[in-house]
């Protein structure tokens, strides 16, 4: 028959209270663990990995027990699995692109250094009528005191060998870019 719904779900499936308290205790413990690990000073990628591992465990506990997924229809588990899979594909492929832009040509993977494109910022400021925009230029300039507004946005990055009209100013800006983090 097409509808399993006729058959199942006659009586509610009730879990004993200690299960709930036990899961809550485990969640608290894992929270304390991840909080404590953040003070250890692990290298960044390792810290990210550990934090994600702990968070995934917590998520599995909440989804499995609090959301009753372990005892639920298989279909509902499938829904969650498919949506998480779609999300991971989205992350994976987009990140793969962002990380491999400079694979063939290094300059293609280079975002403009923040100080080099101050002129770009000036040029692209939205019309003053827009709220919030009017302040943008001023405080931007104040924060990035190192930036000279004259540096040409047309200048090629140091990586690109091509000399450009503004190359003089461009390379002058390059040391300041040490604080910026344009490249991958």
């Amino acid at each position: 028959m097409a509808n399993q719904a006729h058959e199942n779900h006659h009586e509610p499936h009730v879990l004993p209270l200690p299960v709930y308290y036990g899961i809550f205790g485990a969640l608290l413990g894992l929270t304390i663990l991840t909080y404590a690990v953040s003070f250890v000073g692990l290298p960044e990628s390792l810290a990210l990995g550990v934090a994600m591992l702990v968070a995934s465990t917590k998520a599995a506990l909440v989804a499995g027990v609090f959301m009753h997924l372990i005892w639920d229809e298989k279909l509902n588990i499938l829904v969650l699995a498919v949506s998480v899979l779609a999300m991971l594909l989205f992350f994976g492929v987009t990140l793969m692109d962002e990380m491999s832009r400079g694979l063939i040509l290094p300059e293609e993977g280079t975002l403009f250094k923040q100080n080099e494109d101050a002129a770009l910022k000036e040029a692209a400021n939205p019309p003053p009528a827009e709220p919030g925009a009017a302040q943008a230029g001023g405080k931007g300039a104040k924060l990035k005191a190192a930036a000279g507004s004259g540096e040409g946005s047309a200048a090629a990055p140091a990586a690109a060998a091509a000399p450009a009209a503004g190359s003089g100013e461009g390379s002058a800006a390059a040391p300041a870019a040490g604080s910026g983090s344009g490249s991958r």
Binding site: A123, G150, A155, G166, G170
Partner: peptide, 23 residues
């Protein structure tokens, strides 16, 4: 060099800056 400083009324603020591109 810095077109956004003063925009003539009735026109969009559309011009890019030429600072560094013109000697």
């Amino acid at each position: 060099m810095n077109p956004m400083a003063k925009i003539v009324a009735g026109y969009p603020a559309a011009m890019p800056a030429y600072a560094g591109r013109i000697n």
